[in-house]
Design a protein around this nucleic acid. Structure first.
Length: 478
RNA sequence: CGAGGUGUAGCGCAGCUGGCUAGCGCGCCUGCUUUGGGAGCAGGAUGUCGGGGGUUCAAAUCCCUUCACCUCGACCA
């Protein structure tokens, strides 16, 4: 069929050229467009709607855990950025600077925020005075700018949208609990809303956030076996508090430094959705964040009653679901392909034959199954199907990931696995950064995390053979 | 930032050893017919050849420069 050929032309097969497939999907599903500035993407309505659904649900989880939203400025004076040494060293190479206001040279240049720790710290120093002022549980939804050398839509863009939570606590214990609580929120969110399994763990010294005492991460595995750091949560101890002089008077009238955290999830999560669930027909969106949950395609819409009935059904379902009723004069086949490419979880076909039988045809995007549904109690059937699709996507992603997590006990086996089998490799590590660097050098893999679920595979470091202190998940990362 | 590649209509491309009014397919617009897996016929519109500079009687075509995109590395959510 000519139509089949066209479809094949439209999107590169994923196993033929995964990066090209990704680019095709991102552009053809109308998630983004490129802008005039390198690495800055335009989030088109369909792409932004996914982000809005992520925001909406994640924001609710933040509110439920006691957080408040604020909005910090986008500019950071250079002197402020430089107050914490590790932090500035980590970010300085990739910040954009504002040097002029109009035509006037500024007395002090301003950095466009790459992240907002310094702004929150400066603010906390002003507003935190007493133990009664704590904790401060703030979050903001903003974009930040990092002048990256290589950019890719969603995965690494010059400007990207995210949320950054910044909290200040009276004690180290409270801050540690917050750090891990938010990591759990992320992991649960990935599972319950994006249908993506993640591995929770701690970053090594080499991989942790600039200025943090410890960084925790949720790592996901993409279709090509590469790792995507999908959200991070950092514990700062009182390091930033000392640098920014954030002190409060405790119950014993003693001056104390606060203990802080920060945590973030970005539009990169959309990249994860694409690369975990997508297939050769395009996007596959998890129902709970899909901008369109159900596409309704009237068949032979000119026949008496078809348009009226589908409109009524659409309005009814629209009270519960995000619905798109497509009454355009495109051919049905065109619409099927279009909504498949856009990853719409469920499609309902309603034609004269269906209406005679008081039914419609439902087609699942995740597995292509065609199901005949009675029009009575349709909303409840649709809800069941969407939930099944969510579960199906998660299970498939979990199987896919688990089947590609390998274990290595000896160096040759480790190198061979990393080089030849896309996926994660679990192996023991002595804790020395030299081994981490050597592994990076020889295999291209980095430590993704020290998983919370530690299994002692052996007592020797995979790299140097010295006594091992922990198990690490290694992988090639985006 | 290093190596390589690409910028011509909305998309995909041809034209490129300088030469006539810059082409093709798809899409788009109008009308009629169609509608259960990317429709058919008829008519129609659309280009500062990525930008700037140069060489030349003449530049999409040659030279310089700049911007963006893609691939692979090095650096990072």
């Amino acid at each position: 069929m000519a139509s089949k050929d066209k479809m094949v032309e439209a999107i590169t097969a994923m196993d033929e050229d995964f990066t090209q497939w990704y680019t095709d999907v991102v552009l053809k599903a109308e998630l983004i467009d490129h802008s005039a500035v390198k690495g800055c993407m335009i989030l088109r309505p369909y792409g932004f709607a996914i982000w809005e659904n992520i925001q909406h649900n994640l924001d609710r989880l933040f509110k439920e855990t006691g957080h408040e939203n604020v909005a910090m400025p986008m500019f950071i004076p250079e002197s402020l950025l430089q107050k914490e040494k590790d932090h500035v060293e980590g970010f300085a190479p990739e910040v954009a600077w504002v040097t002029h206001g109009g035509s006037e040279l500024l007395a002090e240049r301003l950095c466009v925020r790459p992240t907002s720790e310094t702004l929150f710290c400066d603010h906390y120093a002003h507003i935190v005075h007493s133990w009664r002022d704590l904790p401060k549980l703030y979050n903001q939804w903003v974009s930040v700018v990092r002048w990256e050398k290589t950019t890719r839509p969603f995965l690494r863009s010059t400007e990207f949208y995210w949320q950054e939570g910044h909290t200040a606590h009276a004690t180290a214990l409270e801050a540690t609990e917050e750090t891990l609580r938010m990591l759990d929120v992320y992991a649960d969110f990935y599972r319950d809303y994006l249908a993506i399994p993640v591995t929770k763990g701690q970053k090594t010294e080499k991989e942790k956030f600039a200025g943090a005492v410890s960084t925790y991460t949720v790592e996901a595995m993409m279709h090509d076996g590469k790792a995507l750091q999908s959200a991070t949560s950092h514990y700062f101890g009182d390091g930033f508090a000392r640098a920014f002089d954030i002190q409060y008077t405790d119950k014993n009238n003693q001056q104390q430094y606060v203990h802080q955290t920060s945590w973030g999830l970005s539009t990169r999560s959309i990249g994860a959705i694409i690369m975990v669930h997508g297939d050769d027909s395009g996007l596959v969106l998890p129902p709970r964040i899909a901008p369109i949950q159900v596409a309704i395609i009237p068949i032979a819409a000119h026949k008496p009653g078809v348009l009226e009935r589908t409109t009524a059904i659409s309005q009814e379902l629209g009270r519960t679901f995000r619905i798109k009723l497509d009454t355009s004069d495109k051919m049905p086949g065109w619409k099927f392909s279009e909504y498949e490419m856009k990853g719409v979880p469920l499609r309902l076909e309603i034609g004269p034959r269906d209406l005679e039988n008081n039914q419609c045809v439902a087609v699942r995007r995740d597995n292509g199954a065609k199901i005949t549904l009675p029009l009575d109690n349709l909303a409840s059937s649709v809800q069941d199907l969407l939930d099944q699709i969510h579960e199906g996507l998660y299970e498939k992603a979990l199987q896919s990931r688990n089947s590609r997590i390998y274990s290595a006990l000896a160096w040759p086996e480790f190198v061979d696995t990393i080089k030849n089998k896309p996926g994660f490799v679990k192996a023991m590590w002595c804790g020395d950064q030299a081994c981490e660097l050597k592994i990076k050098e020889e295999t291209g893999a980095t430590s993704r995390c020290l998983p919370f679920d530690q299994e002692m595979q052996s007592d020797r470091c995979i790299c140097c053979g010295r006594p091992a202190t922990s198990q690490v998940i290694w992988g090639k990362a985006y």
